[in-house]
Computed example of a mutant assay.
Amino acid sequence: MTIRRLTLTTAALLSSLALAACSSTTGGSGTGGDSTGATITIRIPEDGNSGVLALGKKDGSLARALAKVHAKVQWTGTSGPFAPAAQALDSNALDVAQGSITSATAALAQSPGFRLFAATAPDKLGEGIIVKSDSPLHTVKDLAGRKVAVWHGGTAEYLLLKALQQNGVPVDQVQRVYLQPNQIGPVYASGQVDAWSTWATYAVPQLAGGKSRFLVTGGEVGSENYAVWAVRTGFAEQHPEVVRAFYEYLHEAGLKQQADPAAYLNVNTTAGPEAVSPAQQAVQVPIDRARGTVEPINGADLEHFHTVARFFADQGITKEYLDVKPYLIDVAALPKEAR
């Protein structure tokens, strides 16, 4: 099978990052930034009312971390599915975004304008296929002849296909209903689909208070769906020290979140549609405590990434196998300050 490759090797990319760090450059949003002390602007999606970026914005810790490398944040839009974020990275409308290796693999096959610089181990508790608590479905085999809501080409479709393969259910016996994640809730609630393959953002509200249950979790299907952080290629080449500083903030904040997950919920408000209810907190806290923090991408991670890429190619989600290696940055090798 043909392997898609870039002309830049990983070593060449790191070399270009180091060279770029030595020169005067322009920030991603047009704000100058270099070793003279001019401010670099890094565009980041809002994290809403919960998470390490939400708290970092409120308490100023993210601003302080970036100020050390003469950078500041411009909050751009809100975090969500990675596919639109990848398009924004590719079109120079965004500088960093978080997604999954499944969605990143699908996006790289179409819009390779970004690189991956950090990863978090797969979420074994918060991702999976949910059904209503009173559903007659109790095993993955029960999905035969049923409709399952998914978001195309990412976590949701990956988890469903993995579950079907693991349980010997032919793919063509299950109807995939493709919808955007924020459209699925009403469809699921009305009974137009029998199950919903999704991740914690959407699963937790459904699981809270016993309204739904997991038919199977990511951990139970052996998911290799790492969470990954992506950076626009041009930004990484111009400002490697900012990428490293941002990574270090994410790493340290993630350790603190793992130790005290509740402190990272309801950062701005305890009321309104963004608020995490007590019932949702009861579901979310164990998920956050079980997860690790972001780390540099190592060789073992890359093997898992390639397993995912082969799986997507075999399942026809991507047209061909995508070699992920040329799209990686060794964040630990990036400079800590502008040169």
Rank of each mutant, 00 (worst) to 15 (best):
E274T: 06
R64Y: 01
T269C: 02
R289P: 01
E337T: 05
G99I: 06
A104E: 12
A20L: 09
D134K: 10
I101F: 03
K68L: 10
P261M: 08
E320S: 12
L250F: 14
L116V: 01
D123M: 04
A86N: 06
T307G: 15
N92L: 06
R291P: 05
G99T: 03
G210C: 04
F246T: 13
Y264C: 00
Y321A: 06
F235P: 05
W229S: 14
L255I: 11
N298D: 15
E337K: 07
P240R: 01
V204W: 01
V73T: 08
P136A: 07
V69E: 05
T233V: 05
P278D: 04
L334E: 00
E320P: 00
F246P: 13
V148A: 04
K325Q: 12
V285M: 08
F235V: 07
E220G: 14
T120L: 12
A88G: 06
T155S: 15
Q257E: 12
R176D: 01
A262G: 11
V140F: 11
G51L: 08
A282H: 07
P273D: 05
R244M: 04
V52R: 12
F235Y: 15
V52E: 07
M1H: 07
Q110M: 07
V96N: 03
N266M: 03
G60T: 06
T105F: 13
L94M: 06
R4Y: 02
S111H: 04
C22I: 01
V221A: 10
K68S: 09
A290V: 03
T25I: 03
N298K: 13
A54T: 07
V331W: 00
V193G: 08
D34M: 00
A290S: 15
L55I: 10
A263N: 08
G191D: 04
L19G: 11
H304L: 03
E241F: 00
V308F: 10
K211T: 07
S35M: 01
A121Q: 14
T9L: 07
P278H: 09
T139H: 14
E295W: 13
G219P: 14
G56E: 08
Q98F: 04
D323F: 02
T39F: 01
G56F: 06
P261L: 05
G222K: 06
D194E: 13
A263K: 15
S29T: 08
S212A: 10
G254H: 02
G153A: 15
A97I: 04
P335G: 01
L322S: 02
K256Y: 01
T233A: 10
P261Y: 10
N182G: 15
D194K: 07
A332L: 02
T36M: 01
T201G: 06
Y158R: 08
L108F: 07
N266I: 01
T41Y: 02
P181N: 14
A18L: 14
R291I: 01
R291D: 06
L137Y: 12
Y226P: 05
L53F: 09
G113Q: 04
P136D: 14
T139G: 10
T217D: 11
C22K: 14
V294A: 11
